[in-house]
Design a protein around this nucleic acid. Structure first.
Length: 416
DNA sequence: TGTAATT
C-alpha cells in the first residue's frame, strides 16, 4: 500500500528546530510507520521555516503510535519545549461543527438547549456559558458530530423564535475559530491603545523631562557604588537615552506610533552596530569537535533515538550548523525591570561591555507587541555573566532597579 | 525566566 488510507490522520508537528528539513525529519517519524506525506510549514511569502510541519502516515495506526511515543515526550536539539504531535486543525478538531447559541433565556439549562438541538443530529457537547456565580450568560456552545448537522440546526433555528427573557430572536451560528478569537482580542487591545492618541501626549515636554531624569540618575549611578565597567554601561545608556529620544525611564503608556524607531537610530561613540556575535555557523566536525559533543556541552537535551543508529546522525549534523539561542549553562542571565521601551539592541548595548554577547532578547507579549520588561542576555563564558550580574544587578533606572541574575535552568525549579 | 508554530 503506497497511499494514505481513507481514515488517515494528518498530524501537526510542532517544536521542531528551524534548521531541520523534511529529509532530517523523515528518519525520526519513519520508525512508527510508512510516511505518506511530510511537509515542513514555510511562510508563503518569505519561505521561512516556521518550526512546524504536517505529517500523514499511510496507516492511521502509525499516527497514533507516533503521537503516543513523541507528543510532549521528547525535546529536539535546540528547542526548549517538547515536540508536539497531534491531529492538525484541518482534521475537524471541532470548530467546524461547533455552534454558538445566543439569546437564550437566563433560566435555560444545558438539557433544555440539548432538547432544542437534538432533532438535527448527534450532539457531542452542549454547555450553557455561566458567570462565576453560576448565573447563565444567555448563550451556549453546542457541538455536533458533523458540520452538516450543525448547518442543519442553523438553517432551522437561527432567528426562528424569541425565547422568554431574551431581548431578541435566537442566534445560532458557527462558533468563532481560534484565529477569529485571537483577532478579536487584538482588535480590543488596539482600540484601547487608540484612546491615547499621540496628540494627547505632550511629547516635547515629556522628552525634556525624561532626559533630565536620565542624566540625574546616571550621575548618581556613576558617583556611587558602581564598578568602572558598569560606569561604561551607564554612560552608554545615557548616550542612548539622549540620542534616541525614547528615554529610558519607563513611560506610563507607549504611543502606537513610536516617537523615533529606536533601533534605527545610530549611536555615535559606541561600538559600531553589532550583530549577535559568536556561534557563527560551523561545519559539523570543525575544530576536531564532533557534533555530538556540541550537543551535550551546550546543556540542551538532544533527541535520543531509542534503537536505530541512523536517527541521531542527520540530526547531529543539522544541529552543528544552527545558531544557538542560549549559551552554555551559567552564561545566560535574566534581567528584570527593564524600561518598557527597551529593545533587543538596547539590551545588547547595555551588556556588551561585559563580554561576548551571543544573544540579547527582550521578552515581548505576542498579543500586544509590548515588552514584558524582562529579557535574557547570553555570553560565551560564565565569567562575563558573573561580571555583568555583579555590575548591573540593582542598577537604578528611573524609579526601578534592574534585577540581574543567572537565568533559571530549565530543569531546576529552585528560586534565587 | 528565551523563535507556541496550522499548508
Amino acid at each position: 500500500l503506497n497511499k494514505g488510507s481513507a481514515d488517515a490522520i494528518k498530524l501537526f508537528i510542532g517544536q521542531i528546530p528551524r534548521n531541520l528539513e523534511e529529509k532530517d525529519l523523515k528518519p525520526i517519524f519513519e520508525q512508527f510507520g510508512k510516511i505518506y506525506e511530510l511537509t515542513v510549514i514555510k511562510d508563503k511569502y518569505t519561505g521561512m521555516h516556521k518550526g512546524c510541519a504536517f505529517l500523514t502516515y499511510c496507516a492511521r495506526e502509525s499516527a497514533l503510535k507516533a503521537q503516543t511515543a513523541l507528543h510532549e515526550q521528547k525535546t529536539l536539539p535546540g528547542m526548549n519545549r517538547p515536540i508536539q504531535v497531534k491531529p492538525a486543525d484541518s482534521e475537524g478538531r471541532g470548530e467546524d461543527r461547533k455552534l454558538f447559541v445566543g439569546m437564550l433565556g437566563k433560566q435555560q439549562e444545558d438539557d433544555d438547549v440539548r432538547k432544542m438541538f437534538e432533532p438535527f443530529g448527534r450532539i457531542d457537547e452542549c454547555t450553557v456559558l455561566r458567570a462565576p456565580d453560576g448565573t447563565s450568560k444567555g448563550c451556549a456552545f453546542v457541538k455536533f458530530q458533523s458540520h452538516a448537522e450543525a448547518q442543519a440546526a442553523i438553517n432551522s433555528l437561527h432567528g426562528s423564535r424569541t425565547l422568554p427573557g431574551a431581548s431578541s430572536s435566537l442566534v445560532v451560528k458557527f462558533a468563532d475559530t481560534e484565529k477569529e478569537r485571537g483577532l478579536r482580542r487584538m482588535q480590543q487591545v488596539a482600540s484601547q491603545l487608540a484612546v491615547f492618541s499621540p496628540m494627547t501626549l505632550n511629547l516635547g515636554a515629556y522628552n525634556a523631562y525624561t532626559q533630565a531624569l536620565v542624566q540625574q540618575q546616571t550621575l548618581v549611578a556613576q558617583s556611587a557604588y558602581l564598578s568602572p565597567i558598569a560606569t561604561v554601561a551607564a554612560v552608554q545608556m545615557q548616550q542612548m537615552a539622549a540620542l534616541n529620544g525614547n528615554g529610558i525611564i519607563a513611560t506610563p503608556i507607549t504611543p502606537i506610533t513610536p516617537i523615533t524607531p529606536s533601533s534605527a537610530t545610530p549611536v555615535p561613540a559606541l561600538p559600531p552596530p553589532v550583530g549577535i556575535s559568536g556561534y557563527s555557523p560551523v561545519p559539523a566536525a570543525a575544530n576536531g569537535q564532533p557534533a555530538s559533543e556540541t550537543i551535550y556541552t551546550n546543556g540542551i537535551h538532544p533527541y535520543q533515538a531509542q534503537s536505530s543508529a541512523g536517527v541521531l546522525d542527520p540530526l547531529q549534523q543539522a544541529y552543528a550548523g544552527m545558531q544557538h539561542y542560549t549559551g552554555p549553562e551559567g552564561c545566560n542571565i535574566f534581567i528584570y525591570h527593564l524600561p518598557q521601551e527597551f529593545t533587543d539592541s538596547e539590551l545588547l548595548q547595555m551588556f556588551l561591555p561585559f563580554g561576548n554577547v551571543i544573544s540579547a532578547k527582550v521578552f515581548v507579549d505576542r498579543a500586544t507587541n509590548q515588552s514584558k520588561c524582562f529579557g535574557f542576555v547570553s555570553f560565551d563564558n560564565p565569567t562575563s555573566a558573573q561580571t555583568a550580574i555583579q555590575a548591573m544587578n540593582g542598577f537604578q533606572i528611573g524609579m526601578k532597579r534592574l534585577k540581574v541574575q543567572l537565568k533559571r535552568p530549565k530543569d531546576a525549579n529552585r528560586p534565587y
